[in-house]
């Protein structure tokens, strides 16, 4: 059973226990087993719709560079900004697991939800918006409601080869993993109270001494026979915006083309 077959009335008998994801950035290798598991389980067609988005971006100049990764499904907020702004009552919070769901029958594709969501979770199959007859309706991560109802975990968390993900009642996640609810570059969690907790990337350390400035010089030189690639380390450290493609977390791209670009791995 998918969200499309679930009615708002059938799930009110249970007491709500807000369920939440846990993402351990320190273990994540951005292999995307989670993304493909999600695509596969939900039969997501090729195209811009991603119930689960993966972000990878870099910070710093060679060799003092750091990669970041982010697991970005819908965070099924306790105070969902999307729900409040939907003029058609299409978005609702399910009563047992605290899942935020959308009724595609009611959705008119106005994209107020997209504007409101600080995380970019609402997804649209095309950029055709309001007013058009071929308007793209919103779809998004369902927390694998169908699996939850059968007593099983969401497919993404079960998929992780690095065991970087977990899922369960939010209080349990917080007590087990701490209550960090935003990684670097993410919105203030106080705004919507996302049902996610994080463990950040483990910082690198110098087990043995390493002089990055010296290393940059050495990479520029090419021995006696060849001219140097550069003589001023600024060639490496002065990075104009736009030179490096993914240099920041871009949770909300304005169109599907850029959203896809921001969520592609470069390890293919």
């Amino acid at each position: 059973m998918t969200q499309h077959e679930t009615t708002q009335h059938e799930v009110t008998q249970h007491e709500t226990t807000q369920h939440a994801f846990f993402f351990d950035e320190s273990r994540c290798i951005d292999c995307r087993a989670c993304s493909f598991a999600c695509r596969d389980w939900h039969d997501i067609k090729p195209g811009p719709v991603k119930f689960l988005r993966r972000f990878t971006w870099e910070e710093g100049a060679f060799p003092e560079v750091t990669m970041h990764t982010l697991f970005a499904p819908c965070y099924h907020c306790e105070k969902p900004a999307c729900l409040k702004v939907c003029p058609n009552g299409a978005i609702w919070k399910e009563g047992r697991f605290g899942t935020v769901l959308v009724d595609e029958e009611k959705c008119q594709g106005c994209r107020n939800c997209w504007d409101a969501c600080p995380y970019g979770a609402p997804q649209f199959a095309s950029d055709v918006a309001n007013g058009d007859s071929s308007v793209a309706k919103m779809s998004k991560c369902t927390m694998c409601s169908d699996r939850l109802k059968q007593g099983h975990m969401p497919t993404c968390v079960n998929a992780c080869p690095s065991r970087a993900l977990d899922f369960g009642p939010i209080e349990e996640m917080k007590s087990r993993y701490g209550d960090l609810q935003a990684l670097r570059g993410m919105p203030d969690p106080a705004i919507t109270k996302p049902a996610i907790t994080f463990k950040p990337l483990a910082p690198k350390r110098q087990v043995v001494p390493y002089d990055a400035e010296r290393a940059r010089q050495l990479f520029g030189q090419r021995g006696d026979k060849l001219t140097p690639l550069y003589t001023d380390n600024a060639a490496v450290t002065d990075i104009e915006p736009g030179t490096v493609g993914k240099d920041r977390l871009d949770l909300k791209s304005p169109d599907s083309e850029r959203a896809l670009a921001a969520t592609r791995s470069d390890e293919w």
């Binding site: 995307r32 090729p46 550069y230 990075i239 104009e240 030179t243 791995s265 293919w268």
Partner: peptide
């Protein structure tokens, strides 16, 4: 694979210094 282009890009990795030298920007 029909999904892969949505999840990954097959592009040549080039360093910042070598890219600047050639006027290349990402993409």
């Amino acid at each position: 694979n029909l999904w892969i282009e949505d999840e990954a890009r097959h592009a040549l990795w080039i360093s910042v210094a070598d890219a600047k030298e050639r006027g290349i920007r990402d993409g």
